[in-house]
Design a protein around this nucleic acid. Structure first.
Lengths: 178, 178
DNA sequence: ATTATATTGTGCGATATCGAACTATATAAT
DNA sequence: ATTATATAGTTCGATATCGCACAATATAAT
């Protein structure tokens, strides 16, 4: 994964009426077309998110949802021992949501929470065998869907999209903490 | 908006081990790289969805959420008088979720539900002035964010992404109803 | 016409999400 | 050392999401 900076031939402030600050400090009205474009973008993102969520949930064993799978998958891919807050930040979720998700996973014996030796306030999240197993099973159960999609959506297209979406995700992320 | 078909130089069944059905009817294992790619894609989609949702909610008046705004925006853009089920399908949401969302909007006098003259089981959703006003205000309150983003993410990139995402959305949509 | 099947919307219960307030610990300021 | 401030995680209450079962109506089959 290369880190292409999210700036190609961009529209600088000179192209963007909303960025030209006039004397009284107000902002010029945003170009309606630009506005519509970004709304359309987030709209598509939202619908695809919804669709993929539903698709995954249909193949997931009863009671466990995408949220749970995502956490397990994250830990398998990037290594366990992370703190709850680390994980919450990775998914851009509030920490209270992560507390709840982790407590369900813990009840299901798919993770173990241990005190963080480096920080008395914190904890570390470890996968159990059952957690890894569940994650593997979930992925396997999704294979038919992924296979079907990979024959309908060109891999190359998806590959390029992932890069660009990752850039945008980083940009949004940076923008969020001003 | 041109409708580029979602099939460029795609990976046909010949490239896709999971599509070659072997004698016993089972499916060959999916290429792990392909699998990872699609998971990465849906992961980025999910995080951006989460980020944009949080961003919008931060600018939205108290009590009303992205779900409510989206419905109002949809009705303004595509016209009101649609049925709840139409709207649910447009966002790929279960109809029970839409019932709830609409009931909140109705309580806030932003929509009116009237019986459907063409179908006794159904209803039609109409915008009120207050609903349109709320939608306009919401968009205006998001302008600073959109402006900031449009200076960070090239318009051209977003424009291309919207087209490709729309294709994928349609593909997923078709795939969903088998 | 009658019956069988499908569709629209709703009520309900279970769970998920999230903001606010809180506890405990860590870090910085003095 | 003491105090002030920041951070990690939890609890709690409000709301959202969604599957299931249901009533009402529509459509198809006979």
């Amino acid at each position: 994964m290369d880190k292409t900076p999210p700036n190609g031939p961009t529209n600088g402030p000179e192209n963007n009426p909303a960025n030209s600050n006039d004397p009284n400090g107000k902002t010029a009205p945003l170009d309606p077309q630009t506005r519509g474009l970004y709304f359309a973008f987030f709209n598509e993102i939202g619908i695809i998110s919804q669709l993929s969520r539903a698709m995954m949930e249909a193949s997931l064993p009863n009671g466990l949802s995408v949220a749970h799978f995502s956490v397990l998958n994250h830990l398998v891919r990037l290594g366990d021992g992370r703190t709850p807050l680390d994980i919450a930040r990775a998914f851009q979720l509030p920490k209270t949501t992560m507390t709840h998700t982790l407590s369900v996973l813990e009840k299901n014996a798919m993770i173990i929470l241990r005190p963080n030796p480096k920080d008395g306030r914190s904890k570390c999240v470890f996968l159990t065998d059952k957690g890894r197993e569940f994650r593997d099973d979930a992925i396997a159960s999704l294979d038919p869907d992924v296979a079907a999609l990979s024959s309908r959506i060109p891999i190359k297209v998806v590959s390029e999209l992932v890069d660009k979406l990752a850039d945008i995700r980083k940009t949004l992320d940076d923008y969020r903490d001003e």
